[in-house]
Design a binder for these strands. Structure first.
Lengths: 203, 203
DNA sequence: GTCGTTTTTAAACGCAGTTTAAAACAAAAA
DNA sequence: TTTTTGTTTTAAACTGCGTTTAAAAACGAC
């Protein structure tokens, strides 16, 4: 018998498991309380609301996963190598953590106006260093000049959206889960190739 | 079997307006009933559930908008021209109907497993004709051989995802709504250019 | 052991979507 | 016209949700 964790942790852990397993909306507070073995009202005592509990869990999940992504963007790699690594790591992260996608979708759908309040999600966006690098390489003539915002949105879209429409892709192509995994795997090469080809100066 | 089409229509119209205005989740059945000027229980009488009402509205909205997209994919245009038109029309459609995006997000988030049941959403995906065209042009050597599924997912991602992360983009770039509209407008050229550049055979 | 604070509890609140059973209604049958 | 039949509408209640309340219990410092 392990030493009993404190109540807050028990709620956090039970909720995380349930949220990932069946989605936020389909998980009731009463269910969380039962699984955590605590009284119903304690969820509101420790986290002010279910929404808040969700945010706490999401933030921790994003934080854990986004550090490596930011490290890549802020590194001194060449733009090409940076894009290749970023795409690869991001895709790995979403592959291993498919429910992170659900979480992000839930957030984007849930609070479109209040998205800036979700500081965590910002960690999944471009950094200043990346922006500067794109501008400078363009100025130096190493790549085509391009709006860094557009480039980053391109990259993010190509990486993330296929996960969001996973079921649609599976259905339309009669894919097995393995097929879909292979489909995604191929994108690790495809996406950087496409982006870099776009940036390459034509003579 | 002659139902008063009047009441059903009133519910449908009121719900459509409210769903688009404030989102499905933030619209209560009681609110719909009030706006439609009907009794609360009639929503369940005509549509079995709120979820079902949502599906009916969504299907009609998608149907109305997707016909032109399918017509383009099934046309006899060249692949390049087809891509250009498809991107342009799709972006226009999402721009003019930003809540279609919310709807799609809601669906993707709501029922990831049961997505095939939502036949309407299939209308937003590739057609057989498009797939064949990509394969044939590749075989003929007019373009690089490429997996049509990948190409279509690329295109769809680049078109749709920026709308999904609209608030994030606005926040990160300190955009006004006009700025965002311009940002999207630029993608009408950028996306086809990128895709066609990828398909162009290099000598 | 007492006091003040923190934690836990049972119960209830308000709102959501939904169901029920009776009433109102319209059109066909007598 | 009156009766019957089936559809449409209604008020009320049901279940389950997230949340709040106020009192009880547990705890820690003195």
């Amino acid at each position: 018998m392990t030493r009993s964790r404190n109540t807050e942790q028990k709620i956090f852990d039970a909720a995380t498991e349930l949220f990932l397993e069946k989605g936020v909306d389909r998980t009731s507070v009463r269910e969380i309380a039962t699984k955590a073995g605590i009284n119903l009202a304690l969820m509101n005592y420790y986290f002010r609301s279910k929404e808040n509990l969700f945010n706490a869990i999401f933030s921790s999940l994003v934080k854990k996963n986004s550090e490596e992504l930011i490290r890549i963007l802020d590194s001194d790699l060449s733009l090409e190598e940076k894009i290749r690594q970023y795409v690869e790591v991001y895709i790995d992260m979403l592959s291993e953590n498919p429910l992170l996608v659900s979480f992000v979708m839930a957030i984007l759908h849930r609070s479109r106006e209040r998205i800036t309040e979700m500081k965590a999600i910002s960690n999944l966006y471009a950094t200043e260093k990346f922006t500067q690098q794109v501008l400078e390489e363009g100025k130096k003539g190493n790549i085509n000049r391009t709006d860094p915002s557009q480039l980053f949105v391109d990259m993010l879209s190509l990486i993330a959206f296929p996960f969001a429409i996973k079921m649609l892709v599976i259905d339309k192509n009669n894919f097995s889960n393995k097929d879909f995994a292979d489909f995604i795997l191929e994108r690790k090469k495809r996406i950087p190739d496409m982006l870099i080809e776009m940036l390459r100066k034509k003579s």
